[in-house]
């Protein structure tokens, strides 16, 4: 298969037909998606979307991990473009009966799906599927590897508010080590020549992450200074039981986003969060609901970006 080769051909390359990750994507591949998504933002606003765009196409949402917002977002995106959308979640599928991932792939292939949106707890599972199916595979989050549409929607949100992406200083704060959202954002923002800072305790932001071309900070005070964007990540409860963080109160005291810390960032800096939020753990409620927060808008951008991705992939497939 051609995807995953050098030159960023995992996406929209000469023969690339999947979206498995942001790593390797060039700005010339990123910007057209954002531009197309802009048009879908307007259409979503006026409730006039091109329902004939994906007519006759089948989109299967294949979620091996629970998700509400991402699945719903893809479902809406597909439906607004006129695709036939089917949701499969693992609890209802034969995976629980012992079917292997590749058996599932063969089954879905026989059903002739055009677009396969996959979420899986294992890094690399969508890439494995992509080798075995005729459909375009869209990674909707795999393990701690990537969540490419999240990074694209975050980029779109930043661009709409700040007018550009290039050269922004973006602080990504919290459980970076276990975050696929963070990885996709790091790749995208670095490709777009942003200054990326990772902020969190060393157990969640290992110093070795600097090898990705980013700065590593272990205090919010250092990491947030003069940032254009503060992106908070969700602290999973298993980080406490796993021992990486001693308690929620300590986490909030040193790594939570509150008014005082946000004031260290540039005036009017954007506050982002991929959701769902833990209020009072990684973010103060007042900040989450403040004027600087674009958290709800991220959700809106999510549908538009996914429409753009589905559109481009389906049309690429057609030609």
């Amino acid at each position: 298969m051609a995807e995953g080769q050098a030159g960023g051909s995992r996406f929209f390359g000469a023969s690339g037909r999947h979206l498995l990750g942001v790593q390797g994507m060039h700005p010339s591949q990123i910007i057209p998606i954002l531009d197309l998504a802009e048009t879908y933002v307007l259409m979503n606003g006026s409730r006039k979307t091109p329902r004939d765009r994906l007519r006759g196409r089948t989109l299967i949402n294949l979620f091996f991990e629970d998700s509400t917002r991402t699945r719903t977002s893809f479902e809406l995106a597909g439906k607004r473009l006129g695709a036939d959308v089917v949701n499969m979640s693992v609890s209802q599928s034969s995976v629980n009966k012992g079917e292997t991932l590749l058996d599932t792939a063969a089954t879905l292939n026989a059903m002739r799906a055009d677009l396969l949106v996959v979420r899986h707890s294992q890094s690399g599972a969508p890439a494995l599927l992509a080798q075995k199916v005729d459909a375009s595979v869209i990674n909707a989050g795999d393990g701690t590897h990537e969540h490419p549409t999240q990074a694209l929607l975050d980029a779109l949100t930043m661009r709409r508010h700040l007018g550009r992406i290039e050269g922004l200083t973006v602080a990504i704060c919290g459980d970076v080590a276990h975050s696929r959202v963070a990885r996709s954002n790091i790749h995208l923002l670095c490709a777009m020549s942003c200054r990326v800072r990772l902020v969190g305790p060393p157990t969640l932001v290992p110093g070795a992450m600097a090898s990705l071309g980013v700065e590593v900070h272990h205090t919010m005070e250092e990491g947030l200074r003069d940032a254009d964007v503060v992106m908070m990540l969700r602290l999973q409860h298993e980080r406490m039981s796993g021992g990486q963080v001693p308690s929620a109160r300590e986490y909030f005291r040193f790594y939570g986003l509150d008014r005082k810390r946000l004031e260290l960032a540039k005036p009017g800096a954007l506050v982002m969060h991929p959701g769902p939020m833990n209020r009072g753990v990684e973010i103060d409620s007042q900040i989450a609901d403040s004027d600087q927060s674009v958290i709800r808008e991220q959700v809106e951008m999510g549908v538009a970006v996914r429409m753009a991705v589905l559109d481009r992939l389906a049309r690429g497939n057609r030609s």
């Binding site: 021992g243 963080v245 005291r253």
Partner: peptide, 17 residues
């Protein structure tokens, strides 16, 4: 570690403070 039991980290940040 909590309770000096050797299982989970104690609140090193808050204790330092």
């Amino acid at each position: 570690t909590k309770g000096c039991r050797g299982e989970e980290l104690a609140e090193i940040g808050l204790l330092s403070e």
